[in-house]
């Protein structure tokens, strides 16, 4: 079929056939577990509805716990809120995904580069910040998930810049992980982000900011 071990070209059993045959022999010779449906008695939804005030408050608390910044605003205050964050960062050059829609951002002080798919990692390394939307937010874990849609862009542009601002709409925030999984398309390239990059590799002492964006801001709308 699709197995392409060059070493096996030219006859004899392939590694694929041999591994599968060994597994089958092992399973047949033992009375292991029967295949079966796993019990799913864990919570598949939270007690609070997506986008409800309780869920949003929990989301804010949990994202902040990772030392990310969270700002809440009404839809008509997005331009002002985003501009404030960029000004605070001293960011004069930002990159945005192709369908982010930045006409609202007063571009007077800020140079905006829209990724048309031609930017190189070096190009993106030269910008101060990236702005994206997201596919879903998870309150209990303080997570935002990006799925590569037009308002979120290629994975590279939300990775290389040192600062990342994510726009999250209230109705995108669910309480639990299973609710998020149900909303996501598992065949898309997904990036789950919970706070800025971090490491605990030295004496398990947590340090925020390593290779990914060292600063994360979430603007929660609504």
């Amino acid at each position: 079929m699709s197995s392409t071990d060059p070493q096996d070209a030219g006859g004899g059993s392939t590694a694929r056939d041999e591994v599968l045959a060994t597994i089958r022999a092992a399973l047949e010779a033992t009375k292991g577990h029967e295949p079966g449906q796993a019990p799913r008695e864990y919570r598949s939804t939270g007690e609070h509805a997506p986008g409800s005030e309780a869920v949003l408050e929990l989301f804010v608390e949990r994202v902040e716990d990772y030392k990310a910044t969270v700002l809440r605003c009404d839809p008509d205050a997005i331009p002002e809120t985003v501009s404030d964050v960029l000004a605070q960062w001293g960011a004069s050059h930002v990159v945005v995904p192709p369908d982010f829609g930045v006409e609202w951002l007063s571009s007077g002080q800020v140079r905006i580069t829209t990724d048309d798919g031609s930017l190189t990692p070096e190009d993106v390394d030269a910008v101060d910040a990236v702005l994206t939307g997201c596919a879903v937010g998870i309150a209990e874990t303080g997570t935002v998930v990006l799925d590569g849609s037009g308002d979120q862009g290629r994975r590279m542009i939300s990775l290389v810049p040192d600062r990342h601002l994510v726009l999250v709409h209230a109705d995108q925030v669910v309480q639990t992980v299973p609710e998020a999984v149900a909303r996501l398309d598992g065949t898309r390239p997904l990036t789950w982000i919970s706070g800025p990059s971090a490491t605990s590799d030295i004496e398990l002492d947590r340090v925020e900011g390593v290779h990914g964006p060292r600063t994360l801001a979430v603007v929660l709308v609504g």
Partner: peptide, 8 residues
């Protein structure tokens, strides 16, 4: 609660 990054 969640590791900083999960890639799929």
């Amino acid at each position: 609660r969640m590791n900083p990054y999960t890639s799929m």
